[in-house]
Nucleic acid binder design. Structure first.
Lengths: 209, 209
DNA sequence: GTCTATAACTCGATAGAC
DNA sequence: GTCTATCGAGTTATAGAC
């Protein structure tokens, strides 16, 4: 509990941080089982023994990395669920910001999904923070919009899941989409960028009364 | 149970098939790296050495399993993309059938997504069949609907990705949704079942001119 | 075909020099 | 703090008896 509790500080390039960054790369690409301490050490440019000097075990190192990654996604979701912003602005803002952050960190969704499915107990007890965003404000907001006739009747839970699905899934399924639709690397990049506009349009169209 | 619920192969119960079935369970739940030959042998009720007698190596066994799983999802997608069925019927039929098949095999999406992201070369060269469904027929159909004014203007690629995302992603993110929305195991089951109706409604609403 | 026993190897972790 | 060397557990794969 002594030093690194919060982990978003800028690059000071200590050995400890180089290890952490190398571990983040390897763990996110290979997963817990596929990652090897040797590869992390090589990528950090140091020796295997040093990994254990700074982080006691592979398990501890993994937990640090996982916590930092999960923590990165929560503020955006909290903003959507808990803020008092106007409904349509919120939808627009969430889609834009969420697709943007995933576009810049495309490894995050698969990492989180894998972790949560393969090791749910560790995820919920050790990695996920306890103060999760609460969806009540957002849900009341949806219900108010429905009651006012500004959007068609829809269950708020399904609305939320539809929106998140359309934002995240294409990044996770990117290689499959590329092959199925016969896109070049440049075309798929453009396609994913377009989705900010497309998902927003589709959400608003799907909600028209 | 003598006969398994949802497998289409003949239930002959040879040693070879028991191994294959055990391997399917372990590989889909643990992934290639997390799966252990010992566990597969235990679950098949035979000895580790027999795994190598029937399938030469862990790698070969994994490829067999992966090919079978991927092959299972393709006919539904081919039906959507290539058949000449009327547009709205197609949309309704695809969502219903796809959510149903995933509901009965909820491990498939994460398995395929993981495989394709972690080992793209093996996936495309060894596991994915060469004769993929071609999207042209479906795309022309969407364009015809738009031209006729029966649906609002939308890029067929995004329409397709929106629909598939809303069908698949909730199953992959199930544990996260459970926690975020505070659902019991029974409630999440019901929620995912409801999605046949909800996704259909949302798609059709989003496409109204 | 099926088993037991074990070889061959990988990998996380530690000891101890500097 | 950082390194080299090595241990010991766990894993895939094979040899050989039945």
């Amino acid at each position: 509990m002594a030093k690194t509790d919060n982990i978003q500080e800028p690059a000071v390039d200590t050995t400890e941080q180089r290890i952490f960054e190398a571990a983040r790369e390897v763990f996110t690409q290979k997963g817990m089982d596929g990652a090897k301490m040797q590869e992390i050490a090589d990528r950090a440019g140091i020796n295997k023994a040093l990994l254990h000097y700074y982080y006691r075990s592979k398990e501890k190192l993994y937990e640090m990395v996982a916590r930092a990654i999960v923590g990165k996604m929560l503020p955006t979701i909290r903003q959507l669920l808990e803020s008092e912003q106007a409904f349509e602005d919120k939808i627009r803002g969430f889609i834009d910001f969420y697709i943007d952050i995933i576009g810049r960190n495309p490894f995050i969704p698969l990492f989180v999904i894998t972790e949560i499915n393969k090791h749910p107990e560790r995820f919920f007890e050790t990695i996920l923070p306890k103060d999760l965003p609460r969806p009540e404000v957002f849900f009341s907001q949806v219900e108010a919009e429905v009651a006012a006739g500004r959007i068609r009747p829809i269950a708020p839970q399904h609305l939320l899941v539809n929106m998140i699905s359309m934002c995240i899934f294409p990044f996770v399924a990117k290689p499959m989409i590329r092959i199925l639709l016969g896109m070049s690397p440049g075309e798929i990049r453009l396609f994913l960028e377009e989705r900010k506009r497309e998902v927003t349009a589709f959400m608003l169209a799907g909600l028209r009364p």
